[in-house]
Design a protein around this nucleic acid. Structure first.
Lengths: 336, 336
DNA sequence: TTGTATGCGTTATCAA
DNA sequence: TTGATAACGCATACAA
């Protein structure tokens, strides 16, 4: 018992037109008398017509299915990844696009073929964290509409949506400096991640803008993991830093815990800021000063651009979304 | 430039057979000479043939796409949900099934129709947290192959995969009792969640098995949120409990933090255990005693059962996966 | 065991 | 502005 199956033909017959006309009417093609179009639409609606995606695809029309690739290894521990998935799912739904979740469990090329040659997925959004270049290159070469979201290694001729990081990081770091952190440390992310590098750049930029030199002894190479923030507590304390910019909230949180256990006051003794806006809702800690990544906007821009690409339009190649700096209780107000 | 597009016809021609035979050979239908089948397979492989899912579906064959519904509201804060998504994605991929992510942002019925009548998705896995009954009923009535994973309200004639909860909870709680927690408290999850109720049942069971009465003053109705665990710290301390079973790790963790800040030793003063196995990897806290939900196995069973349903076979209607109790540093060893 | 023919629901081409 | 008609790639009933 196939559940619901109103076909275009049925709608057309009801409306007293040919399937072709009905198709045109429903798909917004021009060359249909307005009243006819209206009538067809109403009937389609009344009958609960839904185009069969498979048939539509086979006939050369749009599938209305897009793919999302997230490196599977990053799925589990990366709040960024899961939040992005949710946001993209929501946004795709709003656009009436189906969302296929693509994994990279097999070889990247397999992933590419699976979507392209299967003929179901019309374009893909590549989560930053997946950023193995091979994929992207393969995708581009295969002429698959592709949108990169998040910081990827520089790619020519690829549509990319990202959070503005350099300026906002510099602003936040600058704020910390201006509010009395003359000994400001940074916990970096792993150096193979573009976003980590840019956050470090922002840290440096804030200093150079104030004609200050970065104390390299206060640059702690780390890995974005909460544990590492926690483990660095003693080191930070011994370094004599009175402020720390952690390159993500996870590390900031770990460090916060460590400091609290060692009875170091935040922000009394040490100011602390992070990046991501991860722990917005449910946390048994004071609100962290951080840069909030606007996932929803990222997802919106990504889906919109992808749809444009698929439709043959040309969206902006690079879109930088402005994040919001949220001042919490872990930093002091500026002293001016 | 359509990327790759080897059709069945091309494979057939290369192999010197008709498309029909090639189809049969590739799909494992019987009535094909073994050597012919082998030859076709080899050629298909060499050519990199991939069946066009749309065409296949249109012709009445399988789409090899399944859907996954997760209540969107649970996506963000629920580790359970995201982990399940990852596990299902992985498992679907292993079965060479595409995975569509279905949201419930619109009306549930819309979600149902979107998948069914579009003709792309052949069956759905419903994440426990989505458990609005309406969906399930609609799905079943629409005759859509459906597998429920996680604790749903009781449903007749629906394939369900879940974690064995009652026995394992009773075992863990029993262990706590036996190791000296004569005043054992519980933080429950929200009462509208089946899993929360079962965990409470397990708590009671452990008591009744020992002819002990549950001290209702030590049953704290809560909501699974970390914050609530944290906020209940004082209450717990005042209650004089020397052990707490938190119905999930999030609350356990919140409570742990709160207790630590109040300089209450865990497990010295208060033993603490959770449920889920959420914080397995990266945590700046001692390892929590907990019941580890086997997500991979859940996902495996769910996908396998769904595929069976789609193929017209009849999988076990109820599958209970045994979790593992992991003893960490937050409980004392049994005193016998 | 194999090949031929037909149809799935839709869009696109081409006449009308 | 509209309506026939031909694909799209595949699976199946039927004939061979």
């Amino acid at each position: 018992m196939t559940p619901v199956d109103v076909t275009l033909g049925q709608v057309a017959r009801q409306a007293g037109v040919s399937p072709a006309t009905a198709s045109r009417a429903l798909n917004g093609k021009n060359g249909v008398k307005p009243d006819v179009r209206e009538r067809v639409k109403i009937i389609a609606d009344a009958l609960g017509y839904r185009p069969n995606r498979a048939a539509r695809n086979l006939a050369g029309g749009r599938t209305s299915v897009i793919g999302l690739i997230i490196g599977s290894s990053h799925f589990r521990d990366d709040f960024y990844a899961t939040t992005l998935v949710e946001a993209v799912a929501f946004e795709a739904d709003r656009h009436d696009e189906g969302l296929m979740l693509l994994t990279d469990s097999k070889s990247p090329s397999t992933a590419v073929r699976n979507m392209v040659s299967d003929g179901l997925v019309e374009g893909v959004i590549v989560g930053a964290l997946a950023a193995g270049d091979e994929w992207v290159v393969e995708l581009i070469e295969a002429n698959v509409p592709t949108v990169l979201v998040g910081a990827h290694p520089p790619q020519p001729d690829v549509c990319v949506v990202d959070v503005e990081t350099l300026r906002s990081t510099a602003d936040l770091v600058g704020h910390m400096i201006d509010s009395g952190c003359e000994r400001l440390a940074i916990l970096t992310g792993p150096s193979y991640r573009q976003d980590a590098l840019t956050r470090l750049d922002g840290f440096r930029l804030a200093h150079s803008e104030r004609d200050l030199a970065v104390d390299e002894d206060l640059v702690f190479r780390s890995n974005y993991r909460r544990r590492s923030g926690y483990d660095l507590s003693d080191t930070i304390i011994e370094s004599g830093a009175n402020g720390v910019f952690a390159s993500n909230d996870d590390m900031a949180f770990g460090l916060f815990q460590g400091l609290r256990e060692r009875h170091v006051s935040v922000p009394g003794d040490i100011s602390l800021a992070g990046f991501d806006g991860t722990f917005s809702t449910d946390l048994s800690a004071p609100e962290l000063t951080t840069i909030v990544v606007p996932y929803e906007q990222l997802a919106q821009a990504a889906v919109r651009s992808l749809v444009q690409l698929i439709d043959g339009e040309t969206p902006a190649m690079v879109q930088m979304i402005e994040p919001e700096i949220r001042f919490g209780e872990t930093t002091r107000p500026p002293n001016n």
